[in-house]
Design a protein around this nucleic acid. Sequence first.
DNA 1: CGAGTCTGGGAGATCGCTCGCACAAATCCC
DNA 2: GGGATTTGTGCGAGCGATCTCCCAGACTCG
Lengths: 338, 338
Amino acid sequence: MTETAKRRPGPRIEEVARVAGVSKSTVSRVINDEQYVSARAREAVHAAIAQLGYSPNQAARALAGHRANAIALVVSEPSGRVLGDPFFAGVLRGVHSELAGRHVQLLLMMSQPTDTEDLVSYLSSGHVDGALLVSLHGEDPLVPMLAEIGLPVVSGGRPLGRTVPFVDADNFSGALEAARHLVSLGRKRIATVAGPKDMAVGADRLSGFKRGLSEAKMANDLVVHGDFTPEGGARAMERLLQKEPHLDAVFVAADIMALGAMQVLHAQGRRIPQDVAVVGFDDSVFAATATPPLTTIRQDVEELGRTMTWRLLAELAGEAGLPPSLLLPTSLIKRASA
Amino acid sequence: MTETAKRRPGPRIEEVARVAGVSKSTVSRVINDEQYVSARAREAVHAAIAQLGYSPNQAARALAGHRANAIALVVSEPSGRVLGDPFFAGVLRGVHSELAGRHVQLLLMMSQPTDTEDLVSYLSSGHVDGALLVSLHGEDPLVPMLAEIGLPVVSGGRPLGRTVPFVDADNFSGALEAARHLVSLGRKRIATVAGPKDMAVGADRLSGFKRGLSEAKMANDLVVHGDFTPEGGARAMERLLQKEPHLDAVFVAADIMALGAMQVLHAQGRRIPQDVAVVGFDDSVFAATATPPLTTIRQDVEELGRTMTWRLLAELAGEAGLPPSLLLPTSLIKRASA
DNA sequence: CGAGTCTGGGAGATCGCTCGCACAAATCCC
DNA sequence: GGGATTTGTGCGAGCGATCTCCCAGACTCG
């Protein structure tokens, strides 16, 4: 039909100024909530804005104000598989709820290894004011690259390598609590299916677990690493059972792996929790519906998203004395498996 | 430390022009891939861009060009629960892959009923060039509102009420194929757990199913509606079994409901597929891992996202003769349940 | 009571790009 | 061979905000 759709232009700031009987400058001050505006003027401007249905042009604001009023959520993972991940969904919800009301837009970007350069150049040239990183592998080249160009960044999950501000669940303490719980149950041979060695989350949960056993003067030699998939959890469990057929408890560093581990235990005729107690981590959607329902360490991923966003916006606002990193508390959720 | 982070400014278009030995205009033409640029000039500009690491300022482009170079993905659902939905994740992946390479950014927006006004006013004032809607309930007020302000919009899934361009799976044909399959298996009493009446997807799948049965001159009286949850599927199945204890096949209009329905069948001692054949819809992640693996109608949600995006961008580019709506093919995936 | 400070508000340059226009050079067509 | 067209290029006026001055009036104070 039409060659190009035409949008009705809407009023300019000038128009608002005229209606309110003030100057452009004053309207701008009101919009940006600056000081040195009389109550009269402020009200007049608000009234004019409401009357005209004025909405400031973001492009012009960004251009003149050297601010983009937008942040990027960078998902650093090739396949895009993360998007379906309940973890990611939770983070996204948190980010969104924290952003609500502020006039900051969220740009969703995915980074493939092939176009990292492009992404960095895009992010570096003022299109966004800062970035949230959700990176699933350990040592992502994106992290140092973004740090270098001086873009404010907050990582979700502790990144390995170069340190940037991050927010993470307190994986160490969570795993520690899991270990203590198993110890308190009177278990004698406690094993763990740990996460990948090259991810901070794997390392931190393993450290916490080991600490818990050493507190109780118990050996922590039963460690096998898995890859955060049910299959990986199953394979790891098989190896553990070979190493130590008499184990009576296992801490699995992710619910999703616990699913696989429990299948193996069932298959080998071990009763949960009578023969082998199982504790997971994450309190993901799978935990409550597993058979038996999984005792696990909860981390609040929505809160993670909220906190990341808060931290980034605070930095953008120039707030001083921000903690470089934040750990969110975890809690033990007791169900039937341990 | 610092009050406000400073970003290194990077080169302007003027700088690129100087290095390439041409004018700003020519650089602009090259960037926007316009005609009337000699090969020499084009190459010189590309070289200069690469050399300087130039990346055009989006805000300035948007301001001068009356284009935002961004589209919104509007998720119209209060709780944000959708985000974890594999359906949404697939769509998002598709959208992203279609956007790759084009210089169009994706803004993610969530619409609560409370701030619909704000959203519409935001979208209407030129911040984005168009919007993709993923709306989970039937008659969303957002649809007519956006249509009214003249913002190019493509809906994912056929919206009820006011017609806007949409892309959807061919739910009718898919359900028709499901019904035919059950008929071809020699089943005599075929029931359906349909979707909600107030959603197009529910209505369309039900129509297709009924058509399939009437083709075979069979009664289509065994219809109970569910709400696209496993529990809803379970309740619906119970009601169907009450109505007709002798049913020997059921078409469940969503895999997620089929899960609940199959639980009920198991619980009542019906063997699948010997006593009751079950066909689902979606081919979601649950289908293959169900017990028994679920025969289902596949819809390609990633393709849905891609097609929506393509349709929107084509409209923005002023392409003529675009189909108002598009239906994507579905296919029968035979597994063990039917 | 005049100098100094603080608060409120206006004028207008500026941000970095696109796009309309003018014009030159190359190509075409009879 | 000369006018009409097509192709290639540059100039400079905006786009719609912000933000840096600048100024006026109110208030303080020795």
